[in-house]
Simulated assay, not measured.
Amino acid sequence: MDIAALVTWVITALGGFYMLGTWLSHGGARGGSSHLPVPVIFGHFALAAIGLVVWIIYVIADKEALAWTAFILLVPVALLGFVMLARWIPVHRAQATAPAGAGQGVPAERHFPVAVVLAHGLFAVVTVVLVLLSALNIGGS
């Protein structure tokens, strides 16, 4: 289960890196019209990255405290992720109703592919569950 959590975490991270790169390349960090606050984006990223490193160390060292540390780090990561999802949904919905040629002042997050957002969220939920189950020693290593 530890390795399964690692695999899902890495897949989740890849989707997150893609969306972060998309957001940055479309001017998200420069303020503009983005609905995603810079501290929320980078807080989500930093805590998830730190948690992933802790999880890798846990997989190598097999110390229960590291599993719980990784899980505890995932709690605010998930909360920040839900905040961003809630702020992204209206932007995505507005895209469908925007008149043709309306490209001025488009939020950077409008460029996120729906499939990537959904896959990132799905793998994130699976990761949280697998990490919790591993920390509880349910399902074996």
Rank of each mutant, 00 (worst) to 15 (best):
I3F: 08
A5S: 08
L6P: 08
T8F: 10
W9Q: 14
V10F: 14
V10E: 10
V10D: 06
A13I: 09
G15F: 01
F17L: 15
Y18W: 10
M19S: 00
M19E: 06
L20T: 14
L20F: 12
T22W: 05
T22L: 11
W23N: 14
L24W: 15
L24G: 11
L24T: 15
S25K: 13
H26R: 13
G27Q: 05
G28I: 00
G28D: 00
R30Y: 13
G32M: 08
S33M: 12
S34E: 04
H35M: 05
H35S: 09
L36H: 04
I41W: 01
F42P: 00
G43E: 00
H44F: 10
F45I: 12
A46I: 06
L47I: 08
L47Q: 04
I50S: 03
I50C: 02
G51L: 03
G51C: 00
V53L: 11
V54Y: 06
W55M: 05
W55R: 03
Y58D: 05
I60H: 14
A61L: 12
D62C: 14
K63L: 14
K63Q: 13
A65D: 11
A65E: 12
L66Q: 02
L66M: 07
A67F: 07
W68M: 07
T69W: 10
A70H: 04
F71H: 06
I72S: 13
L73G: 08
L74V: 07
V75Q: 04
L80P: 05
G81H: 01
V83M: 13
M84H: 05
L85H: 06
L85M: 10
L85S: 05
A86Y: 11
A86D: 08
R87E: 00
W88N: 03
I89T: 11
I89K: 06
I89Y: 05
P90Y: 13
V91Y: 05
T97H: 12
T97R: 13
T97W: 06
T97S: 13
A98G: 09
A98C: 11
A100F: 14
A100N: 13
A100L: 15
A100V: 15
A100E: 15
G105P: 09
V106C: 07
P107G: 12
R110L: 11
A115Q: 06
V116W: 13
V117P: 03
L118W: 13
L118H: 13
A119F: 10
F123H: 00
V128M: 06
V129C: 04
V129P: 01
L130T: 01
L130N: 02
L130H: 00
A135T: 01
A135K: 02
N137Q: 15
